[in-house]
């Protein structure tokens, strides 16, 4: 038997050391909060309550301080998400060039609504605000990767890649635009 309940949802030792390694960067451990939450999120795909408690101890804060920060930033989720979190930019510039159509296309293809996760736990779909790719819209971010200049065909390929390999070579590289629009990459 373990001392705390819900041990399996807690941070691993390597996660903890990734957090502690950042302490020297700041005069105050509190500053590692966002990074610590990111580590927690990466570890389980979402931020568990147990992890928040542990971050509190590491950072010498109370769990509520961790929680209030976690709920402020959209990149943290306190609920389990799919393996690939698709985030479609819905803000004006992308909306002008087809973001809403992109969301509809994804909804149809995945058979879920924005805000939902596929039953196989592979994909979650959300809409988000401007991701600074406005000139390359419509676009989406899946986990860490940006995908730009999207078309129906390209989306099909990306989803197929992700299903098959877990990643897709269509992810954008270092950003530089304009590119040649008439012949998309």
């Amino acid at each position: 038997m373990r001392p705390y309940e819900g041990e399996c949802l807690m941070l691993s030792e390597s996660a903890k050391s990734r957090i502690v390694d950042l302490f020297p960067r700041y005069p105050d451990k509190h500053s590692v909060m966002l990074a610590a939450l990111r580590v927690a999120q990466e570890e389980r795909g979402y931020v568990t309550e147990e992890a928040m408690g542990e971050i509190a101890v590491l950072l010498e804060q109370t769990p509520v301080q961790v929680y209030e920060t976690a709920t402020f930033y959209t990149m943290f989720s306190l609920q389990p998400l799919g393996k690939h979190v698709i985030q479609v930019c819905r803000t004006l510039s992308c909306a002008l060039v087809g973001a809403d159509g992109l969301v509809r296309y994804l909804e149809q293809t995945l058979g879920i609504k924005a805000g939902e996760t596929t039953p196989d736990g592979l994909f979650s779909l959300k809409t988000v605000e401007c991701l600074a790719a406005c000139g390359a819209g419509p676009m989406m971010q899946i986990n860490d990767d940006y995908y730009e200049y999207l078309t129906g065909e390209k989306i099909d390929r990306i989803l197929a890649d992700l299903r098959r390999e877990g990643r897709s070579p269509l992810a954008s590289g270092p950003f530089l635009i304009p590119l040649l629009i008439s012949s998309p990459p």
Binding site: E49, M52, P63, V64, Q65, Y67, E68, T71, F72, L78
Partner: peptide, 16 residues
Amino acid sequence: LGSRDRGSLLQIGGLV
């Protein structure tokens, strides 16, 4: 006590 969420959904409260 802390504040949770943001914008017009901002609430005060405890943990979760």
